[in-house]
Write a protein that binds this DNA or RNA. Sequence first.
RNA 1: GCGCCCGUAGCUCAGCGGAUAGAGCACUGGCCUCCGGAGCCAGGUGCACAGGUUCGAUUCCUGUCGGGCGCACCA
Length: 560
Amino acid sequence: MAAAFMLEIREKLAEALRQGIQRAKADGVFPPDCEETVKLETPKDRTHGHFATNAALVLARWAKKPPRQVAEMLLSYLPEVGFLGRTEIAGPGFINFYLDRSWLGEAAAEVLRLAEAYGDNDLLRGEKIQLEFVSANPVGPMNVVNARAAAVGDSLARIFKTCGAQVEKEYYINDYGVQVWVLGRSIEARYRELLGEAVEFPEEGYRGDYITDLAQEVLATYGSELRAKPEEERVELCKEFGYKKILRSQQEDLKNYGIVYDVWFSERSLHQSGAVDKVIKELEAKGLLYEADGAIWLKTSLFGDDKDRVIRTADGRTTYFISDIAYHLNKYERNFTRVIDIWGPDHHGYIPRMKAAMAALGIDPARLEVLIAQQINLLKGGKPFKMSKRRGEFITMQDLLNEVGNDAARWYFLMRSTDSHLDFDLELAKAQTSENPVFYVQYAHARIASLFRQAAEAGVAWQGWRPEDAELWDDDEAEILEQVARFPELLITAAEGCEPHRVTGYLLELATLFHAYYNRKRFLGEGPEVSHARLSLAAVVQRILAKGLSLLGISAPERM
RNA sequence: GCGCCCGUAGCUCAGCGGAUAGAGCACUGGCCUCCGGAGCCAGGUGCACAGGUUCGAUUCCUGUCGGGCGCACCA
């Protein structure tokens, strides 16, 4: 695994800093017991160096001297570090470190050598992470929040993998319980309507047109003879037929969206395998169950939940909650080192309950990580896009994807932090102009591809990296390379915080830098050497754009 | 009432305890004999309020106010 060049330098510098402090301590500059956290960071502002440390600020109180004076002393104890050029003391006492020019060529060469592997790292090496997301009930079309969760889950999986983790994406199929039963009843009612009966539609039933479509299919498949069977049997058949059909359509939609799951896990299988009974017995044995009002309750309130929760209803049905407990227990039995669930906003109140259940089973609740994919406001041209109030009709995931396309949808879902509400403007997402960030970034990639086509036609074909390319670079190139070299660190930050939106923000910045550069410097017409040097830079940027976009599940087009 | 999320520029949002708080959109004015103008450049008296921790707080803690969501023997 290639550790990124910039990260290596950073590590060496951090080590030098530690050594410097140790030496200073040995000389009595700082008392031996001082243990402040010294940070080495990448400044936001490039005029603050390639790296900066707050060491002098932190150590000032121990040395009982002004920070800037401490900084000077610290510098005198600092060992030499490769690629490091000048240092400066700035602001209240920051020490800024600047790399000498030779780092540019090294950094560019590394990107071109590693290509798609650039940025890969070992942060999560050895981790086996399960990501469960979307898991929509198979009772109707998926919605826009499902689409958001899908984008986030898929992108996180990609980011985790690039950080060395083993990742499994899983979809939990709620093919058991009341919801699918209601689906069966709804279809059954429509079925009888189709046969000309005056039917009283179930009050809690699903009223979308797709139910009638499914009833049509039931009629076409099983004919009117089904009417003669007992009601229970009819509902059962409609349920099985309906949920399977809907599940298949959900699977198809997700596949078209580019989301590929490793595991489709059936809730029903937990009942069939006895896993649910087993966990009930386990909780019983721990004395955490009791009966009240005819139902069986789990004492989740002992573990931080507001109140106890029912796991078996008075009429003898097990609840979704107990299935979910068995499901999560199963996850931990599969030896994942981390289990991450992405839930919709309507489930956020469910977190304490689930964590309490984990604690009840002796599993550290901190090991259950839950991300909330927050709700979405659909807009059109800046105005609220009202979903149809007509019964059962709403904007589905597929409607949205048909409208704006996969790339734009993913970008918009990933450009904000997952747990913040999102305004999604359908018109803006579709716009093929610079107002639309996803096109702006993709355009940067396509523009570079176009440059190489132009260069080939002009007979100045790029021949891959040449060390002498860097000699023709100045600060314009350096600025871009600084952004490029920050990429590996960015991926680590994104992975640590489960924050794909950092990648979108980064790509937007990189694309902006490149477009500005493109306007300032000409790639062709200033001689073959200059062309080659600038094309090398373009190639570097293109690799990063492609890699970044791939981590978001967005295409990097050669032409647009 | 309890719990979770959120109050940052006109709007939508970034911002890992640090140095002059950023981006996109919108608005105004420039830039095409030129590699894709699907672009670039210039223009900004903004961290809800009050305490606390810290050398340093938009960031962490507490409280107040304001907004969203959730609190089923549904999932």
